[in-house]
Design a binder for these strands. Structure first.
Length: 420
DNA sequence: TCTGGGGTCCTAGGACCC
DNA sequence: TCTGGGGTCCTAGGACCC
């Protein structure tokens, strides 16, 4: 039996935890670069503010309605996320972290001790007490149904934020009420096509033939159908599989037109990607770089090239990654465009395990690599200062916009709230 | 002027092998 | 005259998720 626990309006809620004066008022969080809306408080939703609405387009409307706007503060959200997950770990035998604000938890066996709904309420109370955040809990025999139960918990007030879909009857009743595009795994494209086939709600999808779904779509949708019927196809995964790729990409605060600036940005992203790679304790062989102009710009040709290079020896040394990334950039750079965004992607990973030992033996990595990288990573995490390679520059005219950033209440000493 | 960032899985098609 | 069939690996692209 699965329970899906997720935090309501996560980013917006994180902001109000430290600003009690804003509770009950409309609050939104905008994406990196203050681009578009990515989280809204209940009050902001009630005003009809859309998810992913471009900020610059609705700025006046937000102001008129006295909506408080925050730039995204991932240091804060990441820290609060950890606290929520730690609370869950204390309460159940196994937790599968699904995203920054969601987790599947294993509640098999709980039903022997107490009704599952009661347990759901205990989770809510405990998380609220420990973090000040409110979660919704959906309980069901499959992950897809648990997601749906969670949807119901969020959307119907009278559930009190907890829905137990153990009973087959309740499953079918809910399925009939939910539009098919709310089903986990059914996005815009597929729901449109399903609509043409006369399938509009989740119950109709659950009752459709698995082989027809497989023929017209694919095995993924077939699994979804089975899951909706109560047949579990997606297993509980307590230990996150290691990553296949790492991406660091960002839009620029202002368009880049000069090679020097792009070179800085690519170096900065390569550095960050290498840091993530080391955090995963992995080594990579492939490094690719991409950049793009704005797809929205009128009267400008869209240009979005990509290039990749390889390392002969798996490495996670910033110097190696930066070198290949720079080389790849040179291959695709063209003057005369106004670049909006760039990114660095690492793939083809190896862990420093048994299988690859001989690779390292034949071409030993730089002897100082491990020690140097460790010192850099420690310094950058100590809160005492930051060091970086010269390539990314000091005056970053392209750095992203974050004009409405909240303090780092939990991760930066000078910003800690003071209790009097 | 201004439109996020970071992932996963699956499939089709081409290259290549015997 | 008659020119196979089956397999693997890789890549690009599409769909989805939060």
């Amino acid at each position: 039996m699965f329970a899906l626990v997720d935090v309501n309006n996560f980013y917006a809620s994180c902001e109000t935890v430290f600003r009690p004066d804003l509770r009950g008022k409309p609050v939104v969080v905008v994406s990196n670069n203050d681009g578009c809306i990515i989280s809204r408080s209940v009050e902001a939703k009630a005003l009809g503010i859309n998810m992913t609405a471009p900020y610059f387009k609705i700025k006046d409307e937000l102001h008129r309605n006295q909506v408080t706007v925050f730039s995204s503060n991932y240091a804060l959200y990441g820290d609060l996320s950890n606290r929520v997950m730690m609370t869950l770990e204390e309460m159940v035998p196994a937790v599968e972290l699904y995203s920054i604000d969601e987790a599947f938890v294993d509640v098999s066996g709980i039903a022997n001790c107490m009704p599952l709904e009661t347990f759901g309420r205990q989770i809510r109370e405990r998380v609220l007490k420990n973090t000040g955040l409110t979660v919704g809990v959906g309980i069901a025999p499959t992950k897809t149904l648990a997601k749906l139960a969670n949807f119901a918990a969020k959307n119907w007030q009278q559930t009190g934020g907890v829905v137990d879909l153990s009973s087959r009857n309740r499953q079918r009743k809910l399925l009939a009420l939910v539009p098919v595009h709310e089903v986990w795994g059914v996005g815009r494209r597929i729901s449109k096509k399903l609509g043409l086939m006369g399938i509009e709600n989740a119950l109709q999808l659950a009752d459709s033939s698995t082989w027809v779904m497989r023929k017209h779509f694919n095995v993924v949708l077939e699994r979804t159908v089975r899951e909706l019927r109560g047949e579990s196809c997606l297993a509980f995964d307590e230990f996150a599989p290691s990553k296949q790729q790492i991406i660091c990409s960002r839009s620029f605060g202002q368009r880049i037109t000069a090679y020097r600036d792009m070179h800085q940005a690519v170096c900065a992203y390569a550095e960050r990607a290498a840091e993530k790679l080391r955090a995963e304790r992995q080594f990579c062989c492939a490094v690719s770089v991409f950049m793009r102009t704005s797809p929205h710009a009128q009267n400008e040709t869209f240009y979005a090239p990509q290039s990749s290079g390889r390392l002969t020896v798996p490495s996670n040394d910033t110097r190696d990654i930066v070198r290949v990334a720079t080389h790849a950039l040179q291959a695709i750079w063209k003057e005369g465009f106004r670049y909006m965004k760039a990114g660095v992607m690492l793939s083809d990973f190896f862990s420093q395990g048994v299988a690859q030992l001989n690779l390292f033996d034949e071409y030993p990595p730089r002897p100082d690599s491990h020690a140097l990288m460790q010192v850099i990573d420690r310094l950058n995490h100590s809160g005492r200062g930051t060091v970086w390679f010269a390539g990314q520059g000091i005056q970053q005219s392209w750095a992203m916009k974050r004009e409405m950033l909240s303090p780092r209440y939990t991760t930066h000493y000078p910003d800690f709230p003071i209790v009097r």
